[in-house]
Design a protein around this nucleic acid. Sequence first.
RNA 1: GGCGGGUUGCCCGAGCGGCCAAUGGGAGGGGACUGUAAAUCCCCCGGCUCUGCCUUCGAAGGUUCAAAUCCUUCACCCGCCA
Length: 424
Amino acid sequence: MSKALLEDLEWRGLIAQSTDRKELETALAKPISLYLGVDPTAPSMHLGNLVVFLVLRRFQLAGHRPIALVGGATGLVGDPSGKNDERTLNEEKLVADWVSKIRKQVEKILDFKDKGVSAKLVNNLDWTKSVSALELLRDIGKHFSVNQMLAKDSVATRLSSTGISYTEFSYQVLQAYDYLELYRRDQCKLQIGGSDQWGNIVAGLDLIRKVEGGSAHALTVPLLAKSDGSKFGKTASGAIWLDENMTSAYEFFQFWLNSDDADLPKLLKVFSMKDRAEIERLIETVKVNPGAREAHRELAREMTALIHGQQVAKSVEEAAKALFGQGEIGDLDLKTLDSALSQLPKTTIKKGDPYPSWVDLLAATGVVDSKSAARRIVKEGGGYLNNKKVESEDFTPSKNDLLHGKYLLLRKGKRDLAAVEVIS
RNA sequence: GGCGGGUUGCCCGAGCGGCCAAUGGGAGGGGACUGUAAAUCCCCCGGCUCUGCCUUCGAAGGUUCAAAUCCUUCACCCGCCA
């Protein structure tokens, strides 16, 4: 079991670094507890976080017990890893709010009902907040060598550039303490994380060895990049978030569907829970018949269902199918149109009110940033009403343009859609 | 502490009194080609009540008919010396 899991992770390209492979294999021969932490630095996790959480899920599926740690405490301090500048501290209340939002997302990814290896969710604030400064310095701090702390990449990088505050410098101590705590209370023997977490994780291993004389393990996952080397999981409008209010389910689905063919093999391996044989089959379809985008679609379905639920995934896919279909948009029946448009950003206008001009409408729906941008788009032939190009800047839609007497479908470019609904 | 260099639009980076909303590259956007892909080619890329007007060149003052460009003060960064 242990060997198969590690081999699978290896094949998927999900192992960046680990402590001694043989020992890790041995440890994994029996079910163990392992943990993964996220710091609440935003109201939602994004695809980068998801990668590592899916690895945690893979461990759970292989029979191990996952502990998801949300860093209510560490999030207040700020991790210097991978950051060029000191971060501004967030309000406690805000962080607490983010913690609760992230919790909900974690609950979708891991199985909390599994009888044997039910997942567990913890918040490091619970054991950190009552520790006094003196206790921390005497009981924990004593085991840290500043020499070693300074040598850590995250710290060294900052020392040679913009500097680092005592607060962020102490981050690794807190994270190490987390590992120790989980080692003690849950016999947690493995911590996983993004490859930028290696230093922090190792700090924990050292602490466990010094304080408890115990041995624990570490495994990191590579940071994901696209085939062209650019950062993965970013679009023009920013990161792809798991929160529906930040990245709609429709956008989320479209993100996968529109992925570069060249990235598909990697994406499938990293994100999909499908087995190796199935993934290899899908990769083959990309080569044989790329235009069909079967693999894109499968992945989009799987990911959307995981994060937004089966139902939503289905309706979002249907919406895309209807809106991008070959036929006349006006031929869609009202029911299909209703549900398709419900997935899009929408603005309303009151029945009887004068219709805004074409340019105003584009700007109002948010498909373009400003009226200037809207004019530009129209001039360039990138504005479409009900899937028909409208090149005149002074055009104003009218009642006759309404679909089923209530909708206008706006589009910028090839796939940026929005809806306008006339309400009474 | 002393001397010198820097801070420009999303990022990098020119400009160094009027011709500057500001050269060039990247990112991004539109079009063509396609498959709601990539590559390629063409075009665009501060805002608005758009033949004009308004706001931008670290911050605040000042000189001038006119400043991103000159002067003063402040903040931050980077070198060299102590």
